[in-house]
Design a protein around this nucleic acid. Structure first.
Length: 196
DNA sequence: TGAGTGATTGACT
DNA sequence: GTCAATCACTCAT
């Protein structure tokens, strides 16, 4: 499988968020090889009150302000690590949150990481996705995709009619924007009651 | 220097 | 359905 070129991430963030649906996310770590097809994303812009980059560049959000094609990993709720793909040109704080994936390779490894057996429950949420892939700290934040242990590859084509745009989940600001994308009827997306 | 909040999850009633 | 977990960050003293 071929990795995605850097111009993939240079497009508008909403386009990248939609295009990431169906791509394959791979993590080759000392703990093992694991991968999954991305089935749910959310876009975050700099002039977006729900985005970390809204309040400007800080040590934590610095990767969001670099050129697209890097990772942004952060810790929240005192327990969860979240994985984002940085988009846009350097100097603009934009990115795409990876919310859910359909496990492909390394499923036994993911089950061990997550301590669950149901594959639908391995990566159907942003915290779960990072845990399943073996991301237990923020050391990957700011790293360049495909030049670190995280890779993004071309995967299966998803028909445009099966990619749904809807409001984002779990935020209190700018909730009206339809900046969440997911695969219609996929059993691997988070908050499945919103699926249709 | 301290209170409040959060791009959630899982355990429990 | 409710709620605790637990820490980085922001904003207000």
């Amino acid at each position: 499988m071929s990795v995605l070129s850097r111009d993939f991430y240079a497009r508008p963030t909403l386009d990248v968020a939609r295009a990431l649906i169906g791509k394959v996310l791979v993590h080759d770590s000392p703990g093992g090889h694991a991968s999954g097809v991305i089935v749910e994303t959310e876009a975050y812009h700099q002039d977006d009150p729900a985005s970390h980059s809204f309040r400007g560049l800080t040590p934590r959000t610095a990767p969001m302000f670099q050129a697209g094609g890097r990772l942004y990993v952060y810790f929240t709720y005192g327990m969860h690590y979240w994985l984002n793909i940085v988009t846009g040109p350097a100097g603009v704080g934009e990115g795409v949150l990876l919310r859910a994936a359909e496990p492909v390779d390394g499923i036994e490894q993911m089950k061990a990481n997550r301590q669950v057996n149901d594959i639908r429950n391995l990566a159907n949420g942003p915290g779960k996705l990072a845990q399943a892939l073996g991301i237990f700290d923020t050391s990957l934040s700011g790293k360049i995709l495909n030049k670190s242990s995280i890779l993004l590859e071309n995967g299966k084509d998803i028909a445009a009619s099966d990619i749904v745009a809807s409001p984002r989940i779990g935020i209190t600001k700018a909730t009206e924007q339809p900046w969440r994308f997911y695969v219609r009827r996929s059993p691997f997306v988070s908050k499945i009651r919103y699926n249709n």
